[in-house]
Structure formats: structure tokens, C-alpha cells
Design a protein around this nucleic acid. Structure first.
Length: 850
DNA sequence: GAGTTTGAAACT
DNA sequence: CAGTTTCAAACTC
């Protein structure tokens, strides 16, 4: 057995003929570029034996029938890979598969390659391709070594260093000290080059130390990959091989590792990072984990990873789970903003403020920096993106903010982040930058007491020059700001303080004590307030993401408080919850039994309606318990009919209201749009009082008698349609859900347990319900009135709508169907007909919709 | 922009 | 826990 080296040697000698035994290798070996490439020269200097030792080399081929390791020259391949990556910016578009092929060729892994061809689908790669790759390689190699080809763009180039470093660092090669050393050298060179082109070389010095660290990480990864691949390789055999081969370094195992390591895919703002001080360290660390495939995806991945790691850095301490990251990023959809189990704080949800203000991304918290952010991040002057990340995770620092996920209630741009909000606080808008700049790194004077500052010029200046009263208009487009005069912005009155933000430039407050300079005071005050009310800084609007049907999330942006509601509820007496005085209204959520409002007319959901529905639900629950044991599907249909004739009307009727209104974006619009609802409300208001009392009464009174007025319009529209139509107001989904989701007992609000309990129940329960799809009885029992919480019917509705799966019906929450009368497509024709016939007496349009 | 209204937060 | 006061936002003019 000749080691692969011979081939290399031969390459140098330009004697391709000697390769008869390694015919497959010839093509690659013959490439002049390859032959002359410094890289190969370098390789040749290595002892033939060493490469063999490199165990990790195998990871690319583990799947194969264990080709002799002897043929593996891991380092070489790695190097090659490295080159590929380095060159990518310059135009190398090789896919990972291509790369792997070229690697193989380069490595003289004739056998392995042959095996691959036989075993995998990958052989499809043309032989010539390898040659091309090698050519490319050679060219690139030269370019790299000579440092004569500057990156086309700094950014592109920046993206690579990490990857570059990745390879040399490849831990597996560690066994061959020479290889490692040379690899590092190579990497260093690259870095140096990079620095040269990018700026002061001293940067390289900063980077190098990190390299070692990164090696460690990479080692981990490699080890993980290998282990995985070995195991899987055994299981899957050839198939796996091909896969691995294609993915080269980033085989499934690698992916798994990566996921484990950083379970996130943040939207990339690499540029931002690159501008930040922390960029260096971050990129370094991250680079280690970059997938080794040269595909474009990897690049992207690379960007992600940077963020991920950074995020991890920021959050890992606090957050035990990476899942949180994912949640944050649920930008596109399926990710729920679900509180991370275990560590979740009682009140996961939205800050009222954030909801209101975050809507437009730029609105977010911008006038200020989160208290926690300010406290932690100011000194380091973190990059915006970092800030962003931290804003979510960070809350951890101070007591209550721990783990709470902020939800971006709706923004059009919606980065959910969870769905939420990560971004609601810090958007990339200039405003944010402004706010950040507001608090320069100098925090030396942070001990000054607010009172001391009271008379300072600055404060005076602020109080005088900045006075700009926040108007409703500001809400829509401007940053959050306060106008406090006496509270020094250290009370919950202060929007900024209450939202956990420092006051910013836009604030017109006087004697502001809620500033970075007074961090200590702020923190103390905060603690004090929390001591009285631990939930004081918890989000006022709570979202129970768990309730949101997964399917629904796609349809609905999920950025809105789908299931949001005000934690404590409002106490409005005169405003009827139709103005921003009402916190519920302000947050675009409906009132609930938790509210003590009088004459609630909340456009997002009236308390009375809520109560009525609760009542209906409880009734239904009772009946369902009795009926338990029936075939779920069929039974549900029957129930549905029953319900419709009875309770259903009111409930059904009520539900749609919200969606329609919700379609309007802003509170004002909502208020205006309330007209229809209001009309409906009035017509039904008579019965309202009785709603809670008697089902039958409700059904009759509420039955849309005639004027299929506007009510009908929205009644006719399935909730999901409404949502879509409206561009999907999360609220639409939300309030619907909300209505259904808070099944509190009909009793008045005062019965409400602490909010925490409610939500705990909710959160705990929903998952169960989902799990219990097949066991309706259980779910029903679990939802007993005692617990007060039932997963929202809407969920089911939505679920049905989206998936139309029978499973949704099985949950035993027949209510769902009830509220879905207008879902023609969703319900089987037979069902709808049956329902219709059953409801004919009530004869209303809801069923007609089809 | 000043004044009023409103309801949350704070206080007793 | 209920009642009162304080406060600042929301609103009106």
C-alpha cells in the first residue's frame, strides 16, 4: 500500500503515468495548477505517515465501507477546502459536493473516490469537474499565498476569514503536529493578509490567540461529526456516505453539531457585526463552527453562526436553551414564541409598551435602551446587532425580566422573534443607533443620583429644549418617549422606565433619573418596585404562544399578540376601553375577565363577550364531559350541532367581531372600525347582561336577526380569511384566540388568580391539549372550570383551517367547530349541511357562507 | 400649547 | 384590601 503521498510526489514530478493504480486520481493530479501549487508543495513536505494519522480525515468518508484510512489525507483535504473557501469570494461557486470531489481528487483518494462513485449518486459529477476544481484550487492557492489578490469586497473577504481559520484549525489534524503547525501558519497568513488588506495588522494579533480557542471548538465539532457519522454510517451505509460526501465537513452530523452548538439561524446582519468592537472575537469564534461546505449556504450559515455565537455568548449564561434563539427568529413563521420551558418566567409576553411602540419596527423602544441593555451593554458599546440579541435574552439580568420574551406584536416587517420581539426593542433603524449613541461608553458618573442631576444643565436643557409632547401620532411612528415631570422617570408611570428602558433623547422628561448615569439608582428603584410587585416589569401583555396552533403560525404572522391579553386587565370606568387610557385597548388586545372595566366597548374584544363565551365554554365543557367516550370525530359533529343551536350563537357571533376590527392596524383605526362592532354590540347588548346567565337567551337574542349588516360580512369570513385579508393582523388571530383562550370562569374578574397562575395554567395546558388530541376526555377534564383555562377554540379553528386535520377535532373542544360555522372549506360538506339544517331555525347567514 | 380627563401606579 | 393621592399619558379645545 502506497500512501497517498506518492501521488503528490508524482505530481511534483509531473509523472502522471505512475498512477496507473490510481487512475481516478490522475485527472486531478495532472492539473498543472495543482502540481505547482504552493499548497501541494507544502503537502509534500509533510511526512506521508502523518496524514494517515489524521483521523478526522475520515469523517468525510466514514460512510464508505471504511476505506483504508491510509488514503486519507485529511489535512490536505481540509486545506483544500480551506482554499476553496478562501476563494469563494473570488468567484468560486463550487458547491459542497463539488468541493468534496475535488478534495477527493486532490487527496489521492482514488479508492475512496471510486467507492463513492459506486455507492453514491454523487458520482454524477463529471470527471472534468475535478479538474476544474483543481485548477481553481491552484489558482486560488497561488493567489492566497502571494497575497496579491485582494478580496473583491471587504465584506466578502471578511466573511471568509472565519472559514479560513476553520480549516487550518481543524483539530483532527492535530495528531500530525506538523500539519497543525503548518495549518496554523497558513491560517495566520490568511489572517494577516486579511488584516493587511483591511487595516492595521495588529488585528491579526488579536485574532490569533482566538484561533486556539476556536480550535477547541472546532475539535469538538469535528469529534461530534465523526462520532455521528460513524454511528450513522453504520446504520445507513452507502446512503449516508453519499450524503456525507456531498456535505463534506458539514455532514448531517456536523449539522447536528452545529445545531446543538448554536441552535439558531439569525437573520444576518454581518455587516453590523463587522463594525462592532466585538466583531473580532465573535467572528473568530464563530468561524470555527462554520460548516465546511463551500456552498453559498455555508456562507449564509456562516453569517448566522456569527450571530448565533454571539447570541450564545450573551445569552448562554442566562438561557439554558438554545431554543430561545430559534424562537426569537421566527421571523418567517413556524417558530412559536413560546416561553422556554423551565426557565420561563411567569409572565412571558409582551410589554405593553413594546407592543404599542414596537409595531412599527422603528418605533420600538428606541427612545431608550433597555435598562438591562444599558446596564450591561453600555460599557462595551455593543454593536447594534449584539444589542438586539441581548435585548431579548438579557432581560435576564434583573429579576423579572428573566427570560421573558417580548413579542413584536405586529410590525409589518415583523421579525418575529418571536416572534417577537427581539427586534421590537432594537430595530436597526437609525433611531436605535441614536439611542445607543446616547449612552456612550463612559459610565463613570453613573453614580450620580438623579436628584443631583436635577439641576444640571443637561437636565435643564432636556427639560426645556426637548419638550415635545408625545402625541398619538408619535406613537405610530416615533420612538417611545416620556414626559415625566415629577416622577423622575423612576416610576412605572414612566413609559420608558416601565418598559425597562432608559430614557432617551426623545424624552421630554424633567429631572430624569432613568438614565445610564444613574444606573444604580435605576436598578435600586427597580428592585424596590419589584419587591412590591414582582411582575411590575413583566410584560403586561401576555402571549400564550403555546396556544397558537403550529399550522396557524404560518398563516398568521404570529408577530401579533394572537393570544395576547392584558395580564392584569384594565379598570376603565369612563373611557369604556375605547381609548388609549385603557391599557388593553392600547395594547390592541381585548378585555378579559381580568378587567374590571365598566361598559367595556373594547374594539379588540369586549369583556362581556369574553365572559359570555367563558360561560358557554364552561357549559360546553360540562356537556362534553358527560358525553365523553364517544367517537371523537362523529361526536364532535353532533356536539357542534347541538352547540350551535344553543350556545353557539353568541359565541360564534362574538368571535368574528374581533377579527374584523383587528384588521385595522392602529388603535385609532380599530376604534373607528369599531363602529360595526359597536352596532352589533348595541344590538346585542341587551342580551349581553343575560349572556352570561343563560345560554338559550343568548342564542336567541344574539342571533343576528336580520340585518345581516356588517356583522355578517365578517361573520361570513372565516377567521383565517379575515386574517389574511387584513394582511393578517396578528390580533385577528390573537383576539380570536384570546377569546377562546381564556376560558376563565364566568365569574367576575376578581376571582382571577394571579396572572401568573393563569398563564402558567395556560401554557401548561395548551401543550397538553395538543398532546391529548386523541384523548378528548382528558383535555376536557384538564380544562375543568376549576382551572379556568382552556385552550382557545380559535386555535382549533385555525388549526382546522390550516390543516383541516381531524386531529384538531379530536381534542374534544367542540367549540372550535362552533365558531367555525363559516368555514366551508374546512368542514366537510356533509358536516356543514348537517349543521346548517340544525341551525336553520336560527337561520342565519353564518352558515351560508361557504 | 394649555388645560382637562383618565386610569395606572403609588401611597395610606 | 380598599380608598385616596399622585402622576403622566391621552385627549380636547
Amino acid at each position: 500500500m502506497d500512501s497517498p503521498e506518492p501521488s503528490k510526489i508524482n505530481n511534483n514530478n509531473n509523472t502522471s503515468s505512475s498512477y496507473s493504480s490510481l487512475s481516478t486520481l490522475n485527472a486531478a493530479a495532472e492539473s498543472p495548477q495543482v502540481q505547482e501549487s504552493p499548497f501541494l508543495r507544502f503537502v509534500n513536505t509533510l511526512s506521508p505517515i502523518k496524514p494517515v494519522k489524521a483521523s478526522h480525515a475520515t469523517h468525510g468518508f466514514l460512510g464508505l465501507n471504511s476505506p483504508p484510512l491510509v488514503f486519507k489525507s485529511p489535512r490536505i483535504s481540509d486545506h483544500h477546502r480551506e482554499k476553496q473557501y478562501l476563494e469563494r469570494p473570488q468567484g468560486s461557486n463550487l458547491s459542497s459536493g463539488e468541493i468534496s470531489q475535488s478534495d477527493i481528487g486532490d487527496n489521492s483518494l482514488g479508492e475512496a473516490r471510486g467507492d463513492l462513485k459506486k455507492l453514491t449518486s454523487q458520482q454524477s459529477l463529471p470527471e472534468g469537474f475535478i479538474t476544474d476544481a483543481q485548477k481553481e484550487f491552484g489558482v486560488k492557492n497561488d493567489a492566497n499565498n502571494e497575497s496579491c489578490s485582494p478580496p473583491q469586497s471587504v465584506e466578502e473577504y471578511l466573511a471568509d476569514p472565519g472559514e479560513d481559520q476553520l480549516f487550518p484549525v481543524n483539530p483532527e489534524t492535530e495528531q500530525s503536529t506538523d500539519a497543525v503547525g503548518s495549518s496554523l501558519t497558513e491560517t495566520e497568513r490568511v489572517i494577516l493578509k486579511f488584516d493587511r488588506s483591511d487595516g492595521p495588522s495588529n488585528r491579526a494579533e488579536e485574532l490569533l490567540p482566538l484561533l486556539e480557542e476556536s480550535n477547541m471548538v472546532h475539535q469538538e465539532r469535528q469529534a461530534y461529526v465523526e462520532n455521528n457519522s460513524i454511528v450513522e454510517g453504520e446504520k445507513n451505509g452507502a446512503e449516508l456516505v453519499s450524503q456525507e460526501h456531498v456535505n463534506l465537513g458539514s455532514s448531517s452530523g456536523a449539522d447536528a453539531f452545529d445545531k446543538q452548538y448554536c441552535n439558531d439561524s439569525l437573520p444576518q446582519d454581518v455587516k453590523e457585526f463587522e463594525n462592532s468592537n466585538e466583531m473580532v472575537s465573535t467572528s473568530q469564534v464563530n468561524s470555527e463552527n462554520i460548516p465546511q461546505d463551500g456552498s453559498e449556504a455555508s456562507l449564509k450559515y456562516h453569517g448566522f453562526r456569527r450571530r448565533c455565537l454571539q447570541f450564545d455568548e450573551a445569552a448562554s449564561i442566562v438561557l439554558g436553551s438554545n431554543k430561545f434563539h430559534v424562537k426569537m427568529n421566527a421571523t418567517s413563521s413556524n417558530v412559536k414564541i413560546v416561553p422556554v420551558a423551565g426557565s420561563k418566567p411567569p409572565g412571558i409576553g409582551l410589554h405593553l409598551n413594546s407592543i404599542v411602540n414596537a409595531m412599527p419596527p422603528s418605533r420600538a423602544s428606541i427612545s431608550g435602551v433597555r435598562l438591562s441593555d444599558g446596564l450591561q451593554g453600555i460599557q462595551s458599546k455593543p454593536s447594534i446587532s449584539l444589542h438586539k440579541v441581548e435585548s431579548v435574552t438579557r432581560s435576564s439580568v434583573p429579576s423579572n425580566m428573566d427570560g421573558q420574551s417580548f413579542i413584536d406584536t405586529r410590525n409589518e416587517s415583523h421579525e418575529t422573534d418571536a416572534s417577537v420581539v427581539a427586534d421590537s426593542f432594537i430595530s436597526e433603524s437609525p433611531i436605535l443607533k441614536e439611542s445607543i449613541d446616547l449612552y456612550p461608553a463612559n459610565t463613570n458618573d453613573k453614580r450620580v443620583s438623579p436628584t443631583e442631576v436635577e439641576n444640571t444643565e443637561e437636565s435643564n436643557h432636556r427639560s426645556t429644549s426637548r419638550k415635545k409632547k408625545k402625541t398619538s401620532a408619535d406613537d405610530a411612528s416615533g420612538p417611545k418617549s416620556c414626559n415625566c415631570k415629577k416622577s423622575k422617570c423612576l416610576k412605572l408611570y414612566c413609559d420608558c422606565f416601565g418598559a425597562g428602558l432608559f430614557c432617551g433623547e426623545d424624552c421630554a422628561c424633567e429631572s430624569c433619573g432613568n438614565r445610564v448615569e444613574f444606573q444604580e439608582t435605576v436598578v435600586e428603584t427597580k428592585h424596590h418596585i419589584e419587591s412590591r410587585n414582582p411582575q411590575a416589569f413583566a410584560p403586561k401583555i401576555v402571549l400564550c404562544a403555546a396556544d397558537v396552533p403550529p399550522n396557524n403560525m404560518e398563516d398568521v404572522n404570529m408577530t401579533t399578540p394572537a393570544s395576547a391579553r392584558h395580564k392584569r386587565g384594565c379598570n376603565c370606568k369612563k373611557s369604556k376601553c375605547t381609548k388609549k387610557y385603557c391599557e388593553c385597548f392600547q395594547a390592541n388586545v381585548g378585555c378579559s375577565t381580568g378587567c374590571r372595566c365598566d361598559g367595556c366597548m373594547n374594539a379588540f374584544g369586549k369583556r362581556e363577550d369574553f365572559v359570555a363565551m367563558e360561560h358557554a365554554l364552561s357549559k360546553e365543557r360540562e356537556s362534553s364531559i358527560v358525553e365523553e367516550g364517544f367517537d371523537d370525530t362523529l361526536h364532535n359533529k353532533q356536539k357542534m350541532v347541538t352547540v350551535r343551536t344553543g350556545l353557539f350563537r353568541p359565541v360564534n357571533h362574538l368571535s368574528p367581531v374581533t377579527p374584523l376590527l383587528e384588521c385595522s392596524d392602529q388603535g385609532k383605526q380599530a376604534a373607528k372600525s369599531r363602529v360595526p362592532s359597536a352596532s352589533w354590540t348595541k344590538s346585542s347588548k341587551k342580551s349581553r347582561s343575560s349572556l352570561a346567565h343563560s345560554e338559550s337567551n343568548n342564542s336567541q337574542k344574539n342571533a343576528p336577526t336580520g340585518p345581516s349588516s356588517k356583522d355578517n360580512e365578517w361573520l361570513d369570513l372565516p377567521p383565517y380569511q379575515l386574517s389574511n385579508r387584513c394582511g393578517i393582523r396578528q390580533l385577528s388571530g390573537g383576539s380570536l384566540r384570546w377569546r377562546g383562550s381564556s376560558p376563565i370562569t364566568p365569574n367576575d374578574s376578581k376571582d382571577d388568580e394571579s396572572d401568573d397562575k393563569l398563564f402558567d395554567i395556560l401554557e401548561d395546558e395548551t401543550p397538553d391539549v395538543l398532546k391529548e388530541a386523541s384523548t378528548p376526555i382528558k383535555s376536557v377534564k384538564a380544562n375543568s372550570p376549576i382551572q379556568k383555562r382552556v385552550s382557545p377554540p380559535q386555535n382549533h379553528l385555525l388549526r382546522i383551517g390550516s390543516s383541516s386535520s381531524v386531529g384538531g377535532l379530536k381534542s374534544g373542544r367542540k367549540f372550535i367547530l362552533q365558531s367555525v360555522p363559516s368555514f366551508p372549506p374546512l368542514t366537510p360538506c356533509a358536516d356543514s349541511k348537517a349543521i346548517r339544517t340544525a341551525n336553520e331555525d336560527s337561520g342565519n347567514s353564518t352558515d351560508k357562507v361557504t
